[in-house]
Computed example of a mutant assay.
Amino acid sequence: MEKKYWFPAKPPGYGWGWGLPLTWQGWVVFVGFFVLLVAGAIFYLPDSPGWYLFHVFCLVDLLIFICARKGEPPGPFFRRNRHKGLGG
């Protein structure tokens, strides 16, 4: 059985990490991340910017964890040729 990735790896020359979701499950995670980000801003700001920052760090950690578990393995970070610039 072929493994279905929720998030694709970024192509070489575009950095390290994952791109936009490939499946509906990935889109649920992606949209949920932004909904919780805005909900945290409404709930915490402007009274508790420190708690909002903590909220953002927790959400980002959770998103990276989910992408690492359900996404395609990303390629090497330093794969580009220095002499060709960022895209090479």
Rank of each mutant, 00 (worst) to 15 (best):
Lys4Arg: 11
Tyr44Glu: 14
Met1Asp: 13
Asp47Tyr: 12
Gly26Val: 00
Gly26Thr: 01
His55Asp: 01
Val29Lys: 08
Pro12Ser: 08
Pro74Ser: 06
Gly13Asn: 07
Ile42Glu: 13
Arg69Lys: 15
Ser48Tyr: 11
Pro73Glu: 08
Ile42Lys: 11
Gly85Ala: 03
Lys70Glu: 15
Leu63Thr: 14
Phe77Asn: 09
Leu37Ser: 14
Trp51Met: 15
Pro76Cys: 05
Leu62Phe: 06
Gly75His: 02
Pro74Asn: 07
Pro76Tyr: 02
Cys67Gly: 06
Pro49Asn: 00
Asp61Ser: 13
Phe30Tyr: 15
Lys4Tyr: 01
Leu63Ala: 15
Pro8Arg: 00
Lys3His: 11
Glu72His: 05
Tyr44Ala: 12
Arg82Phe: 10
Val38Thr: 06
Leu37Asp: 08
Leu37Pro: 05
Pro21Tyr: 03
Gly13Leu: 08
His55Thr: 01
Arg82Met: 10
Val60His: 02
Pro73Asp: 04
Gly50Arg: 03
Pro74Asp: 05
Ala41Pro: 04
Gly26Trp: 02
Arg80Glu: 03
Ile42Ala: 14
Gly88Phe: 02
Phe78Trp: 14
Trp6Cys: 09
Trp24His: 11
Pro12Asp: 07
Gly87Ile: 03
Gly26Ala: 02
Ser48Phe: 10
Trp16Phe: 14
Phe34Asn: 08
Val60Gly: 01
Leu45Pro: 03
Thr23Pro: 07
Gly71Thr: 01
Trp27Lys: 12
Trp24Ile: 13
Val31Asp: 10
Phe30Ala: 15
Ile42Phe: 15
Leu20Trp: 12
Lys3Leu: 10
Leu37Tyr: 14
Asn81Glu: 08
His55Ser: 00
Arg79Val: 12
Pro11Thr: 07
Phe43Cys: 01
Ala39Glu: 09
Phe33Gln: 09
Lys4Trp: 02
Ile66Ser: 03
Phe77Val: 14
Pro21Ala: 11
Lys84Ala: 09
Tyr5Ser: 09
Leu22Gln: 12
Pro73Cys: 05
Val35Thr: 14
Pro73Arg: 09
Lys4Phe: 03
Gly13Phe: 07
Pro74Glu: 03
Gly87Asp: 08
Arg69Glu: 12
Ile66Arg: 02
Gly85Asn: 01
His83Arg: 13
Ile64Arg: 00
Leu86His: 09
Tyr52His: 12
Ala68Arg: 15
Leu45Tyr: 02
Val31His: 09
Phe43Trp: 11
Leu53Ser: 08
Pro74Trp: 05
Leu37Arg: 04
Pro46Trp: 06
Ala39Thr: 09
His83Ala: 12
Phe43Met: 02
Trp18Gly: 02
Gly13Trp: 07
Val38Ser: 04
His83Lys: 11
Gly50Ile: 02
Lys4Ile: 14
Gly40Met: 05
Val29Asn: 13
Gly88Arg: 06
Pro11Ile: 08
Leu36Trp: 14
Trp18Glu: 03
Gly13Asp: 05
Gly26Gln: 02
Gly17Ile: 05
Trp18Ala: 02
Trp18Gln: 03
Pro73Tyr: 07
Gly19Thr: 05
Arg69Asn: 10
Leu59Asp: 06
Pro21Gly: 02
Asp61Pro: 05
Pro49Lys: 01
Lys84Phe: 10
His55Gly: 00
Trp18Met: 05
Lys84Glu: 13
Gly17Lys: 04
Pro21Lys: 00
Gly26Met: 00
Gln25Val: 10
Pro12Tyr: 06
Pro46Asn: 03
Val60Phe: 06
Pro76Asp: 10
Phe7Arg: 04
Asn81Met: 08
Asn81Pro: 04
